[in-house]
Amino acid sequence: MSRSDYIIRRIGMAALTVVFAVVMNFFLFRVLPGDPAKAGIRDPRLTAAAQQSIRERFGLDKPLLINLEGNPFDSQFFRYFGNLLQGDLGISYNFNRPVADLLRERLINTVLLVGVGEVLAIIIGVALGLLAAWRRGTAIDVGVLLFGLFTWALPTFFLAIILLIIGSTFLGLPVAGIRTAGGASDPWSQIVDVGRHMMMPTLTLTIILLGEFMLIMRSSLLEVLSEDYILTAKAKGLSDWVILRDHAMRNAMLPMIALIALTLGFTVSGSILIESVFSWPGLGSAVFEAVGRRDFPMLQGAFMLFTVSVILANTAADLLYAALDPRVSV
């Protein structure tokens, strides 16, 4: 099988997975207990007529799968599918605004937090893992190992609360949110303001991700350094640095890429805990609120975004892997 076949097959598989996820996503929310028509407005005095009008407004009066009376496609499922194709994810029960707009606003905040945290964790994790493997058995190695195991085992919410306390009490950093209400309006002070808000949530995410990156990088590099081709490279008269750069790093990065893609896919959803603790207005806290309010369209939209981001990250990892390792796909 040629490389282009491999790429086409991977992308095809990803598209198929997205379709499957979209279908699953629809049914998942239909089997949940609780009546969304009542959940939206928490008022026991809600009349039957009012409930009925809410149902009609959100299309919940239609049959689930196939409309047996009239147009067979006039059902909840096909309306969901059709709207989705037009980028319409429905109206949030809670905010009474299009879900797509809400998600877009929240996504930017989450990407900002996760993006910076992830990049920092990758850089620091790879660097420390590399250093530990290169100085195997020294105090540096032991220190990195202990730090890695400790942070890997640390519960996210616990670290978040500790850092929240430290940040607010000792460093004078803001406690919650992304902006100071009524702060200065010039762009520079706004950037500084967002940066100050970001500091502790980002640090939490970085530390949580760091341990795993360090440990995997260390063990991966140690394995590669014991390979025969490293000895060949040394016998060729290459310097330690060139061996590390041209022979060890590339091979050692292969397992890292899979790991990075995996965490990248999950951090979009996985920052729920961090966003909740720091009241960061991102996707995670949006999901948290939506669950509490039975805001089904919002949840449905968010779940779809999570699924698609996981699938995208995995496909990107597969393609990158194929580009780096010639053995893939043959």
Binding site: E227, D228, Y229, A235, L238, S239, D246, R250, N251, L254
Partner: peptide, 25 residues
């Protein structure tokens, strides 16, 4: 030593093993 390696004396490892880097041509 680095300068003299491969120029003066080189080594052939058991080739069936991983003596060549698998990700480089």
């Amino acid at each position: 030593l680095r300068e003299r390696r491969w120029r003066d004396l080189s080594i052939v490892f058991q080739g069936a093993m991983n003596a060549l880097n698998p990700v480089r041509s």
